[in-house]
């Protein structure tokens, strides 16, 4: 198991940000941590990176408690944070080469470290900007450099905190390809945070929904989708009055409806809930504090 988190709690002063987070990640898995702003995504990831001490709970990353991780452990991790503005005066190639060299002593016969600099530059599509100063890069280029620095040490586990913020659709597509390649070819385990559901669906083997300081859903996009597929909303007008009914079996309900009223039904609409609707509903329920422990959906 690459990540093992049990009953993770975090409290800032008197405010509880995480109340008992549980999840695991296996080698080679791409896991998306999804949730609204302020749900505790960044806090969770920072605890796993060893940048923040948890208030309580059992946390193991590559078999080590992050707070006690040494440099050998550190060398197996890749970190991409939300905002970097560092090394503005360095040139792209120069910086990537410099940071890569710190990983040289940590190479193993099965895993040469770091990635060759030029190969990495073309992997993230920065060939034309290799000689540019980092401070002169555009937002998207800068982000691609951040990702390149995150993977330069050929990590076994990569953390990506909102990696595609500020990407145009094309850059986003390239980035998705890159994530797939890293997971498939290098066997990298990847934990990424996002609040873009479509992105999570496209990238992740498994989606974790974090809201109100808890994991409220944990499953593959397929499982999430199947659970949602049943739910639908039927709307119709009968004798000038508008009706709405939520049902798990829209087809059966409509058949029944027509069996009972052979005329007078008009403006019939059957609307399937999208993944997004369920996600939003889930999050809203948990944020407004209506959810009880039993309701927590393990998909």
């Amino acid at each position: 198991m690459v990540i093992d988190v049990r009953d993770l709690r975090m409290r800032y002063g008197s405010v509880d940000v995480l109340h008992g987070v549980d999840f695991t990640a296996e080698q080679g898995e791409v896991v998306a941590l999804l949730g609204p702003n302020g749900a505790g995504k960044t806090t969770t990831i920072e605890i796993l990176e060893g940048f923040r001490l948890p208030s309580a709970g059992h946390v193991r990353v590559l078999g080590v408690e992050p707070a006690k991780g040494d440099e050998v452990w550190r060398a197996k991790l890749g970190v991409v944070l939300q905002s970097w503005r560092d090394h503005a005066r360095w040139r792209v190639r120069e910086l990537l080469d410099h940071l890569g060299r710190y990983y040289e002593p940590y190479g193993t016969p099965g895993r040469a470290r770091p990635f060759p600099t030029d190969e990495l530059i073309s992997t993230v599509g920065l060939e034309e900007h290799a000689a540019k100063k980092v401070g002169k890069l555009s937002g998207g280029q800068r982000r691609r450099l951040d990702v390149a620095i995150g993977i330069v040490g050929k990590p076994e586990l990569l953390f990506l905190d909102e990696p595609t913020a500020g990407f145009d659709p094309h850059a986003r597509r390239d980035f998705h390809d890159l994530v797939h390649r890293l997971a498939d070819l290098e066997g990298m385990t990847i934990l990424l945070t996002t609040h873009d559901l479509a992105e999570a669906e496209k990238l992740a083997d498994r989606i974790l929904v974090l809201a109100g300081g808890r994991i409220i859903a944990d499953g593959s996009p397929d499982q999430l989708g199947r659970q949602v597929a049943g739910k639908a909303e039927v709307r119709w007008t009968q004798d000038g009055r508008r009706h709405v009914h939520a049902t798990d079996d829209a087809t059966g309900f409509v058949r029944e409806l027509f069996a009972q009223h052979d005329r007078g039904i008009s403006e019939l609409e059957v609307r399937r809930n999208t993944l997004e609707d369920t996600y939003l509903a889930l999050v809203q329920r948990h944020e407004s504090g209506q959810a009880t422990e039993e309701e927590v959906a393990v998909l």
Binding site: E49, R74, L81, W84, D86, Y102
Partner: peptide, 13 residues
């Protein structure tokens, strides 16, 4: 600007 955090994220950085 994050230079320090970057150093922290790299082994012996």
């Amino acid at each position: 600007d994050g230079t320090l955090l970057r150093a922290k994220a790299v082994p012996n950085g």
